[in-house]
Simulated assay, not measured.
Amino acid sequence: MKIAIIGAGAIGGYVGVKLALAGEDVTFIVRGANLEAIRSNGMKLIMHDGTEHVTKDVKATNDYAQAGPQDVVILAMKAHQVEAVAKDLPKLFGPETTVVTMQNGIPYWYFHKHGGPHEGKHVTSVDPTGMLAEMIPPRRVIGCVVYPASELIAPGVVKHIEGDRFPIGELDGSSSDRVRAISECFTKAGFKAPVLDNIRSEIWLKLWGNLTFNPISSLSHSTLVDICQFPLSRELAASMMREAQEVANKLGIEFRVTLDKRIAGAEKVGKHKTSMLQDIEAGRAPEIDALVGSVVELGRLTQTPTPHIDTVYALVKLLARTMEEEKGHVRMQAAA
């Protein structure tokens, strides 16, 4: 398959190297230091066991038109970064091009082929102008939930930490030829990519933790185990999760694990800084609306009170705005 990967960061680099090593025709759409590094040295992947893989036969460009029509386009960036590239994406589309969305949180296409009273509704917190739905028509989309953890440790170099699961699914729950072909492609590359008949349920399961632990960690500068073991923050997380569960239930979603088990899973991760906390410390714009704001929006849509989520959302949005205005970052430092 001809596969374009938008972004060669932690997840995009990991996926791209594995697909290229499996024989797929991979093009990274990147810029800056990453572009130069890949062009000069290829893309390197350091696995969790220390083994190294380098693929030098991948293409890298910042010119979408030069890359041309693809069989599959993988969006491997954070949700709030997609709008910046949306207008260029159609240059990668042929008549049958499929787009695999790897963003965390509620996606812009959530209510496409959803059925019921909310069919076709627009998620404005994720796609405020409607540009994403226009430039990336939901009919092209295969949903994907990302479970692996990795990090970009240098331009053109990704270190894998753990995980290999990328569940995927058609928005209408069908088992189409294209979703099976993508599953087989990912499986050949060494990933677990089961085809799900309800990709939204899997999205909510991951979001259940992200919408709580990410903003709480950012506001408290604490790791997952700290949040889970401190009684007050553990109860705050649980309260947010209960509110989110009620919203999800009203949209027809049932969680396959209990709330306590989900918190216990986060606790087992240990002294891990969430991606949002890492962004706050680095002075990068944090991923807030897809993870938290979207749940606030869906709470209003389903007439479900979400007071704990609303409060945390307001605080982390204010933090992000202050960082932007001051052009700074916030980081815990040892006292002198």
Rank of each mutant, 00 (worst) to 15 (best):
110 Y>D: 09
137 P>V: 10
18 K>V: 05
288 I>D: 01
4 A>Q: 13
160 H>N: 14
94 G>P: 06
228 C>R: 00
290 A>H: 03
234 R>Q: 00
316 V>T: 15
187 T>M: 12
286 P>A: 10
174 S>K: 05
109 W>S: 15
272 H>D: 00
207 L>A: 07
253 I>W: 05
228 C>E: 00
50 G>M: 06
216 I>N: 01
78 K>D: 03
53 H>G: 07
4 A>G: 11
96 E>Q: 15
205 L>D: 13
278 Q>S: 04
73 V>G: 05
2 K>E: 09
173 G>C: 01
94 G>L: 04
143 G>Y: 09
124 T>H: 14
121 K>W: 11
29 I>D: 08
56 K>N: 06
316 V>I: 15
106 I>R: 12
47 M>F: 12
218 S>V: 02
330 V>Y: 13
190 G>H: 11
307 P>R: 14
325 E>P: 03
190 G>M: 08
308 H>Y: 11
147 Y>N: 01
63 D>F: 04
197 D>C: 10
78 K>C: 08
152 L>N: 07
252 G>F: 13
236 L>A: 14
310 D>C: 08
233 S>Q: 03
8 A>G: 12
236 L>H: 03
159 K>C: 12
293 G>N: 05
125 S>Y: 06
72 V>W: 12
168 I>V: 15
76 A>Y: 15
131 M>V: 11
156 G>K: 10
118 H>L: 14
319 L>K: 12
31 R>I: 09
311 T>H: 14
290 A>V: 07
192 K>M: 07
97 T>N: 08
83 E>G: 09
212 T>K: 00
117 P>M: 08
318 L>T: 12
27 T>Q: 04
326 E>D: 13
153 I>N: 04
253 I>M: 14
149 A>H: 02
263 I>F: 02
115 G>R: 15
73 V>S: 11
183 S>I: 04
187 T>Q: 15
182 I>K: 05
100 V>Y: 04
159 K>W: 09
28 F>T: 04
146 V>A: 01
328 G>K: 12
276 M>E: 00
75 L>D: 08
250 K>C: 05
167 P>V: 06
164 D>V: 12
146 V>N: 00
230 F>Y: 14
104 N>P: 07
188 K>V: 07
238 A>Y: 01
31 R>N: 13
287 E>V: 00
26 V>W: 13
231 P>R: 00
256 R>L: 09
108 Y>H: 10
278 Q>V: 11
250 K>E: 10
130 G>E: 04
48 H>M: 11
127 D>V: 08
42 G>P: 07
231 P>M: 02
39 R>Y: 02
87 K>T: 09
31 R>H: 14
83 E>F: 08
325 E>L: 15
149 A>D: 03
332 M>L: 13
185 C>I: 15
76 A>I: 14
154 A>K: 15
32 G>V: 08
316 V>W: 05
211 L>S: 09
321 R>C: 05
187 T>R: 15
192 K>T: 08
142 I>K: 11
145 V>E: 06
21 L>H: 15
113 K>R: 15
224 L>W: 00
15 V>P: 03
255 F>P: 10
66 Q>C: 12
8 A>R: 04
210 N>Q: 00
222 S>I: 01
179 V>M: 04
294 S>H: 04
190 G>P: 03
73 V>F: 06
169 G>T: 11
234 R>S: 00
160 H>S: 13
293 G>P: 02
79 A>F: 08
300 R>W: 09
188 K>D: 09
165 R>S: 10
224 L>M: 14
224 L>I: 00
239 S>G: 05
108 Y>R: 02
291 L>F: 04
61 T>G: 01
